[in-house]
């Protein structure tokens, strides 16, 4: 299986006009920026290195959630967790935000693995939505998306009009946009949100995987982005069903250009360990190679 490769393409520094910024419950923000050149080149899994404004010295990495190449915008979903993201949330439409990107490698689809299972947790949802929006146009793939959140979702969940075999009958909520795209999706949370699976996303994924006949299941490849405990559970899930997986990981960054070796994570390399840079060699790594 081709593991995700390092990415060494051109990085663009774009002064992007902030088009809109919307606040959601749980300190979540959705920001849309005019960045046509980054939009043109972006791939699912890639991120932008965002200048949150003075007096921050370092940029903050945020995944690309949606890109519209025709209209030339990119959209980010982020959570206010500290000084940088709080500062970013104060930026107003019409202001300019400096972006560096698109940074990093991307999730790689494999034709023979025609049933991609996309798992997005919290602010790990963006790359999965980006990937789903591409998959809706790709013939030959039958994707399944699962999203999870422990704060209210940054959209209004609605009952899905797409039936999915193997889902518990009470699990009916989806993200309306995915329904519009014709991409089957369901939601999970431990907060008892109506229509959502009551439990962890990996438990819902396990039920769905177990419901597939062996031949179908062998066509599944798992793609995931989310908090570390979730990714660890996804790694176990993939091992349990002997399925390939690609996981997007996070680490503190300085340059995002590959220059500082600040953002490394330990990755299995033959019998040993290599410290790989999340900004060049990642953020997507083959699941079984990641050492949590």
């Amino acid at each position: 299986m081709n593991a995700p490769q390092s990415h060494r393409a051109t990085l663009l520094s774009e002064s992007a006009e902030l088009l809109s910024q919307q606040a959601f419950a749980g300190d979540q923000m959705v920001m849309r920026l005019a960045a046509s050149r980054i939009a043109e080149r972006a791939l699912p899994g890639q991120f932008v290195h965002v200048d949150c404004g003075q007096p921050m010295m370092l940029r903050r990495p945020l995944s690309l959630m949606r890109v519209d190449q025709k209209q030339g915008w990119v959209e980010l979903l982020y959570k206010k967790v500290g000084a940088g993201t709080r500062l970013l949330a104060e930026r107003q439409p019409g202001e300019t935000v400096s972006l560096l990107g698109p940074v990093g490698n991307s999730f790689q689809l494999h034709e023979e693995l025609s049933r991609p299972l996309l798992l997005g947790g919290g602010v790990g949802m963006p790359p999965m939505l980006f990937m789903a929006s591409n998959l809706r146009r790709l013939k030959g793939f039958k994707p399944q998306v699962l999203l999870a959140s422990e704060v209210p979702f940054p959209f209004t969940p609605e009952p899905s009009s797409i039936m999915i075999d193997g889902m518990p009958s009470s699990v009916i909520a989806t993200m309306p946009l995915l329904d519009d795209w014709g991409v089957p999706a369901r939601l999970a949370s431990n907060q008892g949100f109506p229509g959502c699976f009551d439990g962890f996303i990996t438990d819902l994924a396990r039920q769905w995987l177990a419901s597939l006949v062996a031949d179908e299941r062998s066509k599944v490849e798992i793609f995931a982005c989310g908090p570390t405990p979730m990714l660890r559970a996804v790694q176990e899930l993939a091992a349990e069903f002997d399925l390939p997986s690609q996981l997007s990981v996070e680490e503190y960054m300085a340059c995002a250009v590959g220059g500082c070796a600040g953002c490394v994570v330990p990755i299995r390399d033959g019998d040993g360990v290599a410290m790989k840079r999340v900004c060049v060699d990642g953020p997507v790594f083959a699941g079984e190679q990641i050492i949590f």
């Binding site: 370092l58 300085a254 070796a261 600040g262 953002c263």
Partner: peptide
Amino acid sequence: LGNPLHRVYETPAGMLNAIGLQ
């Protein structure tokens, strides 16, 4: 291999690094 994580961290008007000569 260098130092364990985290290796970089922003501080007022600067940053700390402990890459460990990877």
